[in-house]
Each structure stands twice: as structure tokens, then as C-alpha cells.
Write a protein that binds this DNA or RNA. Structure first.
Lengths: 340, 340
DNA sequence: ATGAAAGCGCTAACAT
DNA sequence: ATGTTAGCGCTTTCAT
């Protein structure tokens, strides 16, 4: 790469403004005790020269890098996209750049990345990974490196995290179905061990119990929401001797598939069977019938996570908290009352 | 951030391996003329110490930063997600990191970013922006900074770019409709001035002409695909004195909306009206009826763009080319023959 | 309030 | 084939 125009440095600015480079640095970093006239002069010169601080140099000396890392398990879902959007906006507002890292990568690389990040490559790390191992987090924690977990539902972590009221959301959804007189409610949920899914399943059970309905393990089907594929699960549910009259699918993308499967089988929603989802992605609203679902505040979680992270970067040492955002039942047309 | 464990540097490695730091540097950078035993020894020490090269330091001295920038106009669409996925994979395979930059930002910031990027913050830049102004690109070009435009359809640029055969795709789609005996074919397309959309509109006209059908400007509706909202456009089309029997919507997200609008009006697809989309996003396949559309190779474009960029970084000075990937008509159930 | 100088981790001449 | 050294652009003591 030929470089005809060399970017101006602090030295160039210092010369042009007839001050020392330390003064320039102070102006850049908003140091208080500078003669206003000097500050102004330097700023004007920076403007004229088109001076832009070199991020690499800054972070090399151990100051802020102006970069935040984002670790994601998968690109391409609306779920991730919405969270990312929230994050991106906050970062923009605060003049931070985003470094994206996907975990389809090999485990050894993961560790390398964590180290690079904690090493000044970034000032903080946001993590959207359904099941973050503590081994991952350990390096970050022991270095007191600012990081926040997005969309987890547990606060026994020694890390900051933001999530949503999964329990209340799932309880509300199940309850809604129960009040519609459904008694056999199938549930399709994610792999075991994910805090978020476990919480939803618990709430489902609790709601059943509150209505005196006995929990039937046969009504529980597990999917892998990393790549939802619910066809056979619906089959399994339908082929029970006492099949469900409603299916609660704890993920809209999967719920939409469930609706499609039912449609292909000429089973009408909501006439023959009711369906409830979780997330409230855009497609849920334009599906036909509109999918009744639980609003999962993905965008807000993204924003909140970023805000918390920036807060941490500013004042390190705050003790970790888990922040919960509200979920909300969105009623559309995919559910009907069961007639006796 | 307290830092109990300081990351090892070249100096630490040099000491432990009893060589000079230049030797260590040479090992890191795969320099040829090193005694194999020494190389091995150094590598072993790096392993033991958990040494990771500091990116900031590297790029500061003007060597590769190991980072590629990605400039995107909007997050959150499957279109962008698919392209990004392709990019991310190639970058991963080649050990590059991704820096994300969205252009909802203020224009002045845009320039700053371009400068930072071209200044060593990254080794190259990928651009997914439907309408990139030449003024943007000028700084990159004059600095001979590696960059490639993703999904543009014009090669009069002085930049590398990858796109797809929009013309052929749109021609094929229109032709398909014509052979189904449709003569009044509405087209909903993006804002004027976007190379991609213009090409599709041209092809639409060409196909009509090849079948001896006169082009009617009243059948052309413009949307803004940044946030598709087609309801009123469909209305406009339907209220023509001689309304279309088919609608070609050059974007699946918009086409899906068109289908929904028609459904709400109790107009059956494809019985009453045929619909064709463009992109072949996932939702097109599970929609009901399945949306006939033109496959737009988003993922492949992402991959190709990243590959080209890396190529450029490796051997600078290659003269810019425009690379075209194939589109393909995907026939599903949203179209039917018009009966006389 | 401002300047001088050291040094962050690394690479690239320039020796040898 | 390997070592020495000078910076890259910036922040940060330490002086003054």
C-alpha cells in the first residue's frame, strides 16, 4: 500500500500549535488544567490538520483502546441481530468500536482470543453465548476485565449479566393457555443446561401446578435452537395417545416451523391446536395466523448490556449484578379456547 | 482493571529461549532462515509461556494488524446477516478479526472512520452499503487501501467489487411470469440510483419487450428496502384501472409483506395474483404459499468478497475487477398461470 | 500550566 | 543465521 499522505501525529500538531506534545495529549484527553486559549489553539490545529488519534498507539501505552469485543455463538439469526443492534447503538453513542468474534472457532482459538482481548485489544467484552463455561470466564474474572453476559438467567455468576424475566414470561404464556381451557400443553424447548430454557420449563411446570394440572414429561420435547428443526418433535407430540391441544414453543423461529408443520398436516391453527412462541421476532407478527408469543426484549438487552459494560469500564471494581428486563405476553391469533 | 498476570512479551520469550528478540520476531513471522532447532525451541517457549503477539504493537510498527473492517448500512436483516456470515468464515479461516462499523453514524464520523481504518486500524475494508458515494471511496483509493464493495452491480468503479447477475435473475423471473401468460406485471423495487435495483428494472423491461409487452410506468412502484413497507404500494397497483395479475417484488422481505397484504385483502396467492421475490431468504421457503424467488447468493458474495480482500492485502496493486456470482430462479408455489 | 523524556510491544533495517 | 538498535504514536511520570 503506497502512502502518499501521511496521517498527522501528535508531533505534527505540537509543532503547528507551537506547544509540546504533552500539551497536545492533554487536549486530546480533556485534561482540566490547560489555558483555555492554548486548548483552543491546539483544537483548531487538530481540526485543520485532520488529526485523528491513533488507536493502536493509545492502547499500546495502556490507555483505552476504544474498542469493545463481542463474542457471539452464531451470526444470522434475528435474535442475535436484534441484540447486536442494541449494542451497536450504545457503542456508537459513546464512540466505541465493535470487534466481532464468532465462536464457531476452535476451542484453542477461543482462549487465545480471550487473552488478546483482555490484553488491551479491547476495553471490554460482551458475550452472547447461551452456555458460557466458567472456564471461559475465569481469565476475564481474575484479570478483573470488564465483561457482561447477555441473555443468561442466573445471577450466581461472578460476572455482570443481563437477562429477562423468563420465568414470568413462560408462566404467563402457559397460564394464558390454561385459561383458554387447555389441559394438555406440549412444550418444545432448547437443550438441557441452558439457564434461560431451564427457567422457562420451570415456569411451565409451575403454571400447570397452579391450575392443578399434572406435569407429564411426555409433553416435553427438546430441540437445538442453534438450528431449530421441529418437524419430528411435533410428530412425537401428536402421536401421543393423549396428544396436546396446545404447543408452547420457547422460540419463535421454532414456533413458526411448528405452525408450518401443522399446516402441511392440514391441522388448523388455532382451530385444531393452539401455538405460542417466545421472542416476538418480526416474522411472528406477519405470520398467518399471527403468532401469540412472549416478547423477549432482545434489543433492550443489547443496549443495557452495552451500557453496563461502559459503566464498568469507567468505574472498575463494581461488584457484579444480574439485571432483568421485562418480558410481556403478546396476544395474536394463534391460540383459541379449547371447547369441551 | 488490576492486572496480576502480565502477558508475556517477545522479551520474555527471548530470555526464556535464550535468543534475541529479533529471532523471536522472526519465528513469529515465519521467517525462512532460522536454524530449525532454534525455531522449535522458541516455539516451545512461546507455547509454555502462553505467548500471544500484541496486535496493537504490531500494527503500530506498520505491519499487519490482523483486522479487517466491515462497513454496513444496517444490522438486523437476513440479507446482511448472510453476507456477514460468509465474510466471517473466510476471515476466521485466515486468522483475521472483524471490526464492525455501521453507517447509521454521522457523515463526519464516517470520514474519521475511513481514515482510522486506512491508517492501520485494519488491513482492509469490506463495504456493504447499497449506495456508496465515490467521495467515501476516494480516500481509500488514493491510499491504495485494500477494499471491496459487496453487492453492487457495476464495474465502472475503481474499486474491487463483488455482485451477482441481477440482470439475468430479474430477466428470468419476469420471463417466468410472462410464460405463465401474465401480461400485466407489477414491479416493486428499491429507491432510484442503486445499481443493483436499476439493473433489475432494466431486465424487467427487457423481458417484457422480448415478449412484445409494452412497458407501463404505472406498474413500477418504488419502496425503500432499508425498511420495506409495501402496503400502500400494493394498494396503488391494485387500484389501477388495469391492475396487474402478478407482482415482482425485488426483495423477499418486501415480497413477504406483499403476500401478507394480499392475504388480508382476501386476494389469494397464487390463484388471484402471482408473486415473485428476490433474495431467497429462509422465510421465503417456509412461507405459505412458498415464495417463488430469485436466489441471490448472499453468503457466497460474502465469502468471495473476503477472499478477494485478503488476496489484495497479500499482493497489493492488482487492478480492480468486478466479480459476478450467479443468481438462480427458485420456483415454489406463489405463481400460477393466468387463464384467459 | 507546561515541557522533557521514558517506554508500551513489536518489526525492520543494519550490523556481524 | 542471529543480534543490536531505532523508532511506530501515544500517555504518563517527573520536572519546572
Amino acid at each position: 500500500m503506497k502512502d502518499n499522505w501521511k496521517a498527522p501525529t501528535v508531533i505534527d500538531v505540537a509543532k503547528a500549535a507551537d506547544v509540546s506534545i504533552s500539551t497536545v495529549s492533554r487536549v486530546i484527553n480533556d485534561y482540566k488544567h490547560i489555558r483555555p486559549e492554548i486548548r483552543l489553539r491546539v483544537q483548531k490545529v487538530m481540526e485543520q490538520l485532520g488529526y485523528i488519534p491513533n488507536r493502536q498507539a493509545r492502547s499500546l501505552v495502556g490507555s483505552r483502546s476504544g474498542v469493545v469485543g463481542l463474542m457471539v455463538h452464531e451470526l444470522g439469526t434475528e435474535y442475535v441481530a436484534q441484540i447486536t443492534k442494541g449494542i451497536d447503538e450504545v457503542l456508537f453513542e459513546n464512540d466505541y468500536d465493535l470487534m466481532l468474534y464468532t465462536t464457531h472457532r476452535k476451542p484453542e482459538k477461543e482462549v487465545t482470543y480471550m487473552r488478546s482481548i483482555a490484553n488491551g485489544l479491547a476495553d471490554g467484552l460482551l458475550i452472547i453465548v447461551p452456555s458460557v463455561g466458567d472456564s471461559y470466564l475465569e481469565p476475564l474474572r481474575s484479570a478483573d476485565f470488564p465483561h457482561v453476559l447477555v441473555d443468561v438467567d442466573t445471577d450466581n455468576h461472578n460476572s455482570w449479566s443481563v437477562g429477562s424475566t423468563n420465568w414470568q414470561g413462560a408462566y404467563g404464556a402457559t397460564n394464558y393457555l390454561l385459561e383458554l381451557n387447555h389441559r394438555r400443553i406440549g412444550i418444545i424447548t432448547d437443550q438441557e443446561g441452558l439457564s434461560v430454557s431451564e427457567r422457562r420449563l420451570e415456569a411451565y411446570k409451575a403454571a400447570l401446578q397452579s391450575h392443578g394440572v399434572k406435569f407429564d414429561p411426555a409433553l416435553v420435547q427438546r430441540d437445538d435452537y442453534a438450528s431449530p428443526f421441529t418437524g419430528h418433535l411435533v410428530e412425537a407430540l401428536l402421536s401421543l395417545e393423549d396428544p396436546p391441544t396446545a404447543i408452547f414453543t420457547t422460540c419463535d423461529a421454532a414456533a413458526l416451523q411448528v405452525m408450518e408443520t401443522l399446516r402441511l398436516k392440514n391441522i388448523r391453527v388455532p382451530h385444531d391446536i393452539s401455538v405460542v412462541g417466545f421472542d416476538n421476532i418480526y416474522q411472528a407478527s406477519i405470520a398467518s395466523p399471527g403468532l401469540t408469543t412472549v416478547l423477549h426484549p432482545m434489543y433492550s438487552m443489547g443496549r443495557t448490556a452495552a451500557e453496563i459494560l461502559l459503566e464498568q469500564i469507567k468505574k472498575p471494581g463494581l461488584s457484579p449484578k444480574h439485571i432483568q428486563l421485562e418480558t410481556q405476553l403478546i396476544i395474536r391469533e394463534s391460540c383459541a379456547a379449547r371447547l369441551d
